[in-house]
Design a protein around this nucleic acid. Structure first.
Lengths: 356, 356
DNA sequence: ATCCATATTGCATACGAATGCAAAAATGCT
DNA sequence: AGCATTTTTGCATTCGTATGCAATATGGAT
């Protein structure tokens, strides 16, 4: 229609004039708890609709000092786990009437530019699912008084909240499962060595293996990256004493490892080699892979994340809270099955050893 | 440290006082083109650093009437193509000093709440990569004077900009490839029937098949959804006259179709059945699938998208622009190869028939 | 040293909505 | 009807920054 010079932008004052009331009345009409007579309210709403008025969130933020925006920092989206998280986060935040500002695609050292942005937009909260710059960034934000939740990771000083699963138990469970399956030589393809998640998963794995007398784990580094995982797999599987069981730190890498093992090295899975992953993400469920994997209860993790944020925003108190959820070892076809301990729950097969 | 009551928030006036200058000087220090003496600037910067000042983007937006925020609307992220797009978009937008507000996870009819949000936050531009609510939403936004770019889709009335690839040619190319491969019975597993992308891909496929005398295409609907694609594949492949070549409207579904064909129905690919997909997305490249697929030049598509937005924002003119890019048929192992026409470019094998 | 052109600076105001306060209107009660 | 409450309303101010304008400082040329 019009040549679209700029944006028009109907203001509350215009609506007020049109409705024959004060600007305050308009504001109160659009403010949930405010004192406004039903009759006035109706007049205002009518005028607003006629003019196509929508309250300006920017102006509102300026005065309320809340942006109703949550920043989400994710290093990369290649691993489907994160898009899934993102989608669920978006859903829950929308339900709480919050928007999601996404920061992604920079694994570098430079946390500062990101931090600057966060501060500049006065976001009400932050979800940190970035592997690398967690600690520095989280400290800064916490210091600035902005609620932060570390998603699927933690830092030593627990000054900042986090939502994780029992990674150590998970690693232990994987080891028990593989031992019960009768495996003899164990490998581990690690994630980012600096990440808490990786340390814990490996820690539990190593611990349980050691308890069973296996102290020689063959380790390669995958850094949560597909290409690096491929290289790691090649190296590990070309050894004369190649493992007959590999725990891969996440499914994203496990998929790559399986591809290399099967199609490049001609190994049969699980006959020649068992593989267990972590996350229970989409591709793990695809029949071409069927990865036996420690699940992470994504929905509940996201729920907890949002709950913590909402709590802290509402109370103004930033007290670090650590939510640690349980995962399950979902049994599929990528690893040899133990004789006992696999039970069926809701159509899924879960490894649940009797003792523990 | 402090009990974290609320957010402190250093203001430009505080910095001004500290630096012994006016608030205007502070503002100008942080405004790229502004007139400010180097000496003053230095003083301000020093004071700003001391106090930990960052300009308040909210307040700035209020007065400049630009939020430097681009809204991205994506229906779902399950298809890795979209996370990839998202990541690249984030990268390029960041480079232009724009933030990315993500809306996702609502396939429903209700475009209105989303639209409301967009308007309330006075976003400077919108990228619409949502399949369903494209047309309605885009019209509304365009009417409001906000630059909109449809990503990987179009509408009839070309009042709103779009970035797509030659889907019709793509469909045609796939047909030519399959015909050249000596296939006899052709199937198509469609995406959302209402989407322009699906219509075009199928249109080209059908057209080229018809030109070669094949008028009986077996069609099932997959709606770009994995589960539906599985059902579609089962139905199609259990027919006595099952096709020996299937064009699946995107790779996300093609993966599911391959899983069903191979593991549920025991078919060999490409011996018993050839499959061609679209997008050339991550899993298509994984060796377990090796999907022959029409590529979409993601980076260039995103580049074009951002370019259009920046143009329109800068000029204030909203003139619909349609960028249509070329894809290539990347040949892998999921479909029988024709005798001729496959050439190697940059280590990838591409189907490029001599004639056309 | 003087004067002019140019570069800097501060003042005052604007952006659009929210809100404390006091005035006004509506309601309840006797 | 008269008075005490309670509910609504409008006024005026505030949030933090940008910017037009006029005032001032700076630098160069003569």
């Amino acid at each position: 229609m019009d040549s679209g010079v700029k944006k028009p932008g109907v203001t509350s004052s215009e609506v007020a004039r049109r409705a024959g009331v004060s600007q305050s009345a308009v504001s109160r009409t659009f403010t949930p708890g405010a004192s406004i007579a039903p009759k006035t309210r109706a007049k205002v709403l009518a005028a607003a609709k006629e003019l196509g008025y929508r309250p300006n969130a920017i102006a509102r933020s300026l005065i309320t000092n809340r942006s109703r925006i949550i920043a989400v920092v994710m290093a990369y989206l290649e691993n489907l786990f994160y898009p899934d998280v993102l989608e669920e986060l978006g859903r829950l935040l929308a339900k709480e009437d919050y928007r999601l500002l996404l920061f992604t695609g920079f694994m570098d050292r430079d946390s500062d530019p990101v931090f600057d942005q966060l501060m500049q937009y006065r976001v009400d909260g932050i979800v940190l699912a970035s592997t690398s710059l967690s600690s520095e960034l989280s400290e800064e934000c916490a210091a600035a008084g902005i609620p932060v939740v570390l998603f699927n990771r933690t830092t030593e000083r627990d000054a900042v909240s986090s939502v994780t699963t029992r990674n150590r138990e998970g690693g232990r469970r994987v080891a028990e499962f593989l031992i019960a399956g009768g495996h003899k030589r164990f490998g581990y393809i690690s994630g980012l060595e600096s990440s808490s998640t990786n340390r814990d998963r490996f820690g539990g794995y190593q611990e349980a293996l050691a308890a069973a007398g296996h102290t020689d784990i063959i380790i390669e580094v995958g850094n949560y990256d597909r290409a690096e995982a491929e290289t790691a797999a090649r190296k590990m599987l070309k050894r004369p004493d190649r493992p007959d069981a590999i725990f891969v730190a996440n499914d994203h890498m496990a998929v790559a490892v399986m591809d290399i093992a099967r199609h490049e090295l001609g190994l049969s899975i699980p006959e020649d080699l068992s593989i267990v992953g972590y996350d229970d993400v989409g591709p793990a469920r695809w029949t071409s892979y069927g990865i036996t994997s420690m699940s992470q209860p994504l929905k509940r993790m996201v729920e907890a994340t949002v709950a913590i944020l909402m709590d802290q925003i509402a109370s103004g108190e930033i007290e670090a809270e650590h939510r640690i959820l349980n995962g399950e070892l979902v049994v599929r076809t990528s690893a040899r099955m133990p004789k006992a301990g696999v039970v069926e729950v809701d159509g899924r097969r879960i490894y649940k050893p009797a003792k523990s």
